[in-house]
């Protein structure tokens, strides 16, 4: 437990001790700002909601989240620090979990910076704070899932850029794919896609609809990818 927390702290610290953390947050805020202006969130006469801008957030996150987690394991493999980790008395699961929690903490901080928009909205109008809360919970959940996928791709390659691009492609197709596919299939597959459609799940929460189904869905998906990551890390020992 202590080891997992130590890895998490180190991970979070290294995001802020190197430019990467600031670059990611700046990029995130820039894109979000453009989105808020384009969706006319602050035009007079519009409802006091950021639903349009925040509804598109997963598409930004598909590119931003992999940038947070791309270093997690790739950098360890590239610089050889993995040797120190793998020969310390910690399990591979503790390592992966620590990395995941560290990235998640950074993600939470990054998400926190976007609170400036609901606060501005409060200054100029009266937003529905219930909906804001449920949107943020949705963002947190979808983010955890995205992070687990990003850490998974980062366990394959010692090249951060490859890890980033692979994760972005996978996540972007997850985000867009659900909508496109669901129209073309029927029966069992349609049901399956509808249930696993992360964007659909997120939109529910953006509307203020918060269900156990989505918690289970995101939790299970994140757990699955973390489990696969642990297996990849273990298997790399054998090469």
């Amino acid at each position: 437990m202590r080891a997992t927390v130590a890895i998490m702290q180190r991970e979070l610290l290294s995001m802020f001790c190197t430019p990467i953390g600031y670059v990611v947050i700046a990029g995130f805020l820039l894109i979000l700002g453009v989105l808020v202006i384009l969706t006319e969130g602050f035009e007079p006469g519009q409802p006091a909601t950021l639903r349009n801008a925040f509804g598109l957030m997963p598409f930004i996150l598909a590119f931003v989240v992999p940038a947070i987690a791309m270093r997690a394991l790739s950098e360890e493999y590239r610089s050889g620090t993995i040797e120190g980790m793998m020969t310390a008395p910690i399990s591979d699961a503790q390592l992966v979990l620590g990395k995941f929690l560290g990235s998640a903490a950074f993600y939470a901080v990054m998400l926190g910076t976007s609170l400036v928009y609901p606060i501005l909205m409060q200054v100029y109008g009266s937003p529905d704070w219930g909906a804001v809360l449920s949107t943020y919970i949705g963002l947190l959940l979808i983010g955890l899932f995205f992070l687990s996928v990003s850490i998974f791709t980062s366990s394959f390659s010692s090249n951060q850029i490859i890890a980033w691009i692979t994760a972005s492609v996978v996540l972007a197709s997850f985000a867009v794919g659900g909508f496109l596919l669901v129209r073309h299939v029927g029966g069992f597959w349609r049901q399956l896609i509808q249930r696993a459609n992360v964007m659909g799940r997120f939109e529910e929460s953006a509307l203020g609809l918060f269900t156990t189904g989505s918690v289970v869905c995101f939790g299970a998906l994140a757990g699955l990818f973390l489990f696969l990551t642990i297996k990849v890390v273990e298997s790399r020992r054998w090469r």
Binding site: L13, S14, T18, G80, T81, I82, T87
Partner: peptide
């Protein structure tokens, strides 16, 4: 206690 050939250090720490 193990000292690998390439010392695994985190340069930012």
């Amino acid at each position: 206690g193990y000292l690998p050939e390439t010392v695994p250090l985190y340069p930012e720490m």
